[in-house]
Structure formats: C-alpha cells, structure tokens
Amino acid sequence: MTCEAARRQFDLYLYGELQFGEEEVVERHVEECASCREELSRCRSLHHAMDALESVPPAGLLQASRREFWSRVSRERVAPVGIVARIWSWVSRVTASPAFMRPVGAVALLAVGFMGARAWDSAKSKSEQPVLHVRSVVPDASGGFRLVLDEVRQRTVTGRLDDARIQGMILSAAAGSTDPMLRASSMDALKDHCERADVRKVLLTAMRQDPNFSVRLKAIEGLKPFARDPETRRALSEAVLSDDHPSVRTMAIDLLAGDRENAVIGVLQELMLRESNPDIRQKSLKALRASNASPSTF
C-alpha cells in the first residue's frame, strides 16, 4: 500500500467504516511508516477537536419542541374537518395507492365531486344542526374510513371520585382537554389517587408533555407520594435536565433531593454542568451535598 492510498483511508478507518481486511492493510502500513503514523495521529487530533465543537441543544429546547408539537397535534385533532379536507385526505390516499388502484380512485373522486355538488345545497339547509367535530380519520382494511366524532352536548353530572365513571371523565379531561385551566383542575382532583396506575400515567404524561407549566407543576405535586417510584424518578430527572420553566425544575429537584441513587446524583451533577439559573444551581448543589456527593463528575 502506498502512503497516498493509506492516507485516503484514514478518516474511514477512524470512523470504523473499513472492512476488516482493509483495516488490517492500513494498520500494517502505519506500523511500518513513521510519516503516516504521524499523519494518522494528526487526523485523530482533528477528529477529537471536531468532537469538542458539537453544539448541544440548550436545556429546555427538546421539551419546548415536544410541547409545541403535541399542542399542534391536539389542535389538528380537534379542528372540525370540512368537506374539502376530507376530499383532500381521499386524494392523498388515492395518489399514494398502487398504480392499479388509481383508475378506481379516479372514478371514486368523480363520484365524490358529483355527490358533493348535490349535497352542497342540502348541507347548507342543515347548517343549524350541531357541528360534529371529527377527532380522527383512520383508513380501514376495506378501503373505507373509521371516523371518531365528538358531539358537543352539555350536561351536568355529579359524583365522587370513587365512582369509576367520574374518575374516567376526569382522567380524560386531564389528558385530553385543550383548556389548561381544566387540565389543572383535573390534576388537582386526581392528586390524591396516585396509587392507581392509570392516574399516575396521566400525571407522568402531563409532567413530560403538557405545554402549560402550571399543569406540569400540578402533576409533579400529585406525584409527590410516588417520588421514589422508578418511572416517576425518571420523569423527574428529565424535568430537572430539560424542562424550560425554572419552577418546574426547582420542584423536581426538591422531590429528587435526598435520593442517594447514583442515577439521581448523576442527574444533579449533569445539571450543574448545564444550568445557568443561580438559584437552581444552588439548590442542586445543596441536594448533592446532602447526599455526600461532589458537584462534578471529574
């Protein structure tokens, strides 16, 4: 192998992208050639220098991105789906179908157009009827669609939390409502029932994904009695490292403080590296000292 050929392979060698045989040839050449050895060492230094330049997304960006995404998804889900959107969904489906299905799709679209024109007037005359909200449209195996509809009909129900029906409704409001006030009051109602796995699941999801920080705080508060539960501890650790609201990070540290688990200590040490809020840094430092742990990982 010539020096030039060996040097062309150095980057792929360092990335571990060479075949076993190719790697052997490069290594043998480098063992025998001092100048290539030096060149490989320079390449390695360059790779290390590049490693150090990786820009890490700031704490909170992932959580903020997730929250915005789920909030957009929930807006899309609850938005009333008009006739145009429904037809467009059909068009997308047809254009994505195998070629042999497309003529069938074209005939179906013509039929939709014809029926749509006829239905237009009758739809207008029925406009006083309650509007249905389409929650989801899922194609089924027969080529049709399965639609889940929300019908808006107001009524009052009363009951205690030990009533499964009442608890189910509150769980649903806590997890699915677009109104943050309603989600927060539902969290309040559920917080004394954390012994139930489904309640904990809703609170954990809210802690991780809810776009409103007050709701996230309520969820953390509700999970207090389960702070030592592994899943809760994981969610609290995530909040400590990536929630964009300082109150949430502070409350999560409070719940994790005193836990001498290595993983928790590691989270607090990691926080010391990335946290810029002095109060939170102080709190984390205090928690680490209480656990007889150092503030850094060395």
């Binding site: 990786e54 820009s55 890490v56 997304p57 700031p58 960006l61 992932l62 903020a64 991105s65 915005e68 995404f69 957009r72 998804v73 899309e76």
Partner: peptide, 23 residues
C-alpha cells in the same frame, strides 16, 4: 433535534425543523 441544531447552529431553526418533521 440534535441533528438540526448542530447542522443549522440556530435554536429557532432547530425548533422549526422539529415541528415540521413530526407534523
């Protein structure tokens, strides 16, 4: 998110790429 942030070196662009990708 890491890919977009490191590639575009901009928080807002990375956020936008995240939203657009997953939507």
């Amino acid at each position: 998110l890491r890919l977009a942030h490191n590639l575009l070196k901009n928080e807002q662009d990375a956020f936008d790429i995240y939203q657009e990708t997953f939507l």
